[in-house]
Design a protein around this nucleic acid. Structure first.
Lengths: 365, 365
DNA sequence: ACGAGCAACTAAAGCGCTAAAGCAGCTGGG
DNA sequence: CCCAGCTGCTTTAGCGCTTTAGTTGCTCGT
């Protein structure tokens, strides 16, 4: 039965209700009825046995489990979900405006960490990459409507984030990553960027730096704002008048461009803090190209750590955290809120610690 | 109804049939029955209308579509799937032995490209990261048994790959990425690594290099073997006797270690070709650290391109391909084979082209 | 010795959707 | 004028599983 597409989702028609692509095979599936027949009991007995509920004797249960194992039976996820069971999946949408995605190992590490929890519980991860927040909302609505996911992870919370209220309205359990501050009723897993930034500035100031620049990320993100504010506060406390934060779009291109601009100034900064490892590496590339020695004439700190910072030379001093562990923490919180809504509060993840490498030193001259 | 876990998946019992975590909410869903009531027709009429099949008048169809739109209805994916419809999802498993994952932008780019095709067709992507091939097979079996995916993408084909026959046995449509050679009946999307390697060696030889080293990837991968063989062949043709391929595990650590070893040799190579961009950057870091000037004393070529190669200084000459476009191609092939098995043959993707940057030059001295 | 109570099962309904079959009302050819 | 053959719907059954409501056949207390 080919999905004879005639008339499905005509341009004009109410959009979006066509069926997804694909046609399954109809080699009849192995069902609990087959197991029931094999063992000589009713399908319900099989269901009881497989789900560990009372109603079957231990002897029968064992025979059923063995038969299921032997026949290599697996529950049909759709059939379970239809009965009101959870979908057995959580969703993650990454909204990236450009093709820059992927150079930042952060999400890959995070996903890897999440998987170690999710796969142990046989929960699948639905991943979608979209262009902007609007598209992200569409995906959430579809997933919720199709009952495809039991929970959502919302990343990169923004100031006045439209996703929060939208997801709350959908009634899908969700965790916000990195959203300390306003994030509605949704719990968050957050790290103390503020403290991390303060530590960094104190460290640079102690080395003798006074002209510190901050190549920040997207200003719309909450964590970017927190870092900018922290830098300003630290500067105030330490009496550093020449600090500045320059917002970017997190791309290597802007990171490089801003670095070039900063280093061409008459009073060029002697230290630059980058909000991502990719931008830090790009900045290092620019400095090298311009003949500015690192760390002799310029100290570089990355606000995010990964192989990237260790692989270049000089290796970059960075605020490192165990992103894998963060993924674990996030996934656990997510499963928890799916199972028992209301029992999860905000969770503070470990504060990134400054890992000093070769890219920082006393200011030159 | 709490999943009173008593007895579920006891260590000894036949493993793996417990239900996935989570408990959905029971705020009763919007169903086609609601739409039917609203419009004043039967549920089947609604079904017909929504799926664009004959059996309803255009007038009624329009009213139904409008009602569905207005009420923000979405089909329950499980209910559809239960009726034998496809799951509306494809699966991708990445097997990575270490935490190195994520530093290579390749998969992120690939996924992003795939998404642009998949999301347009409302097909979800199930992603799983596992530790090894055995775990990968387990996931395939579970997904197939649970009928969670309509198709699979198998990446990094190996020589004598156990996954091929396993997936064929499962009867799930699948595409192999990069598997020109033996890959059973499964079609592949492949790039001509051989030609790319030949071009690279010809280019280096033309510059005057004779001692060319190749820091290869995992020898078990088919594409690694193809590249190693290509280098050997090119060396034979061009009369370069001092070429060598050194296998690694694709990690930055081994890339750096091998580079260090190569550069410490009495007759150190004057050019090194790295099988991944991450290793190339690591190699560049080592060279810089050892005081070996690039490209003055050492030329570096990366067999994979991404921001990484452009972000460092000197920017690295690389074999670039449009990974995003490759993702598009792969996703299209995958959807095609899901819909019409047997109509997809091997597909040759664009051959990576050599993008010359600053890391290659005539050999010094 | 007899019914209450329980253990161990079976029968049947239902989840939301699709698909096959059924059934009105109309048209038109012989 | 009658019925084959439409169109446009409704009814019904069924996908694989869970779950509630039985239904046996015991055991046990009195």
């Amino acid at each position: 039965m080919p999905t004879s597409g005639s008339g499905v989702n005509k341009p004009g028609a109410a959009a979006g209700h066509g069926r997804a692509a694909g046609v399954g095979k109809n080699k009849t599936r192995l069902t609990i009825a087959d197991i029931a027949r094999e063992v000589g009991v009713s399908p319900s007995a099989v269901s009881f046995a497989l789900n560990g509920r009372p109603g079957v004797s231990e002897a029968t249960r064992t025979r059923i489990l063995q038969a299921a194992e032997r026949m290599n039976w697996h529950p049909h996820s759709a059939a379970r979900a239809l009965g009101g069971a959870p979908a057995g999946a959580v969703g993650l949408v990454l909204a990236r405006p450009t093709r820059t995605l992927g150079a930042e190992p952060f999400y890959a590490q995070l996903i890897y960490g999440m998987q170690s929890v999710l796969s142990a519980r046989s929960v699948a991860l639905l991943l979608q990459v979209v262009d902007d927040t609007d598209a992200e909302l569409v995906v959430y609505r579809r997933w919720a409507g199709e009952q495809r996911v039991d929970g959502l992870l919302i990343v990169d919370p923004q100031t006045k984030d439209p996703r929060i209220s939208a997801v709350e309205a959908l009634g899908v359990p969700a965790i916000v990553l990195g959203g300390h501050g306003k994030h509605g009723e949704l719990p968050t897993v957050w790290a103390d960027d503020r403290e991390a930034m303060l530590e960094t500035v104190r460290y640079l100031a102690a080395l003798g730096h006074t002209r510190i620049a901050h190549v920040a990320g997207t200003p719309a993100f909450q964590h970017t704002q927190r870092r900018i504010r922290a830098l300003k506060d630290a500067a105030g406390q330490l009496g550093l008048v020449e600090t500045q934060s320059v917002p970017t779009d997190f791309s290597d291109g802007e990171g490089a461009a801003v670095t070039r601009r900063l280093l061409s100034q008459p009073d060029a900064p002697t230290a630059i803090v980058y909000d991502s490892d990719l931008m830090a590496v790009a900045g290092l590339g620019v400095a090298t190209e311009m003949g500015v020695r690192v760390p002799g004439e310029l100290s570089i700190v990355s606000f995010d750590d990964s192989v990237l910072t260790r692989v270049v030379h000089p290796a970059i001093t960075a605020l490192s955290r165990d992103t894998h562990a963060l993924g674990v923490q996030v996934a656990e919180a997510l499963l928890r809120i799916v199972e028992e809504p209301g029992t999860v509060g905000d969770i503070k993840a470990a504060t990134p610690r400054l890992t000093v490498r070769e890219s920082t030193a006393k200011p030159g001259r």
